[in-house]
C-alpha cells in the first residue's frame, strides 16, 4: 500500500501502482486528460512505466467549460 495525494486529496493505492493503473481506477483511460507527477508533466507514453510511491503528488486535469 502507498498513500499519494491525488488532485489535493489523500488516496490509498496498491504498491507498484502505475499512472496507467491510476487512470484505470478512475475510468479515465482514453479520456482527454493530462498528468502532472511531483510537479512534472508526464508524457502519455510513460504512463505504464511510471510507478507511484508514498507521498507522491499527482494532478490529473481535463477540459471543463470556460470563457
Amino acid at each position: 500500500m502507498a498513500k499519494i495525494q491525488l488532485n489535493g486529496k489523500k488516496v490509498a493505492i496498491k504498491s507498484n501502482f502505475s499512472l496507467f493503473d491510476l487512470l484505470k481506477k478512475y475510468k479515465l483511460i482514453n479520456k482527454k486528460v493530462a498528468i502532472e507527477h511531483n510537479g512534472s508533466i508526464v508524457p502519455k507514453i510513460n504512463y505504464k512505466k511510471k510507478n507511484l510511491k508514498d507521498n507522491d503528488k499527482v494532478e490529473i486535469v481535463h477540459f471543463i467549460g470556460g470563457g
Binding site: N7, K9, Y26, L28, K31, V61, H62, I64, G65, G67
Partner: peptide, 19 residues
C-alpha cells in the same frame, strides 16, 4: 470554443464531462 483546464473530479466518476 474556449475551454478551461481543471482537476478531474475523482470522487464522482460518473459525473458528465464537457467532452
Amino acid at each position: 470554443v474556449t475551454v478551461a483546464v481543471r482537476r478531474v473530479n475523482i470522487i464522482d466518476k460518473k459525473k458528465p464531462i464537457l467532452t
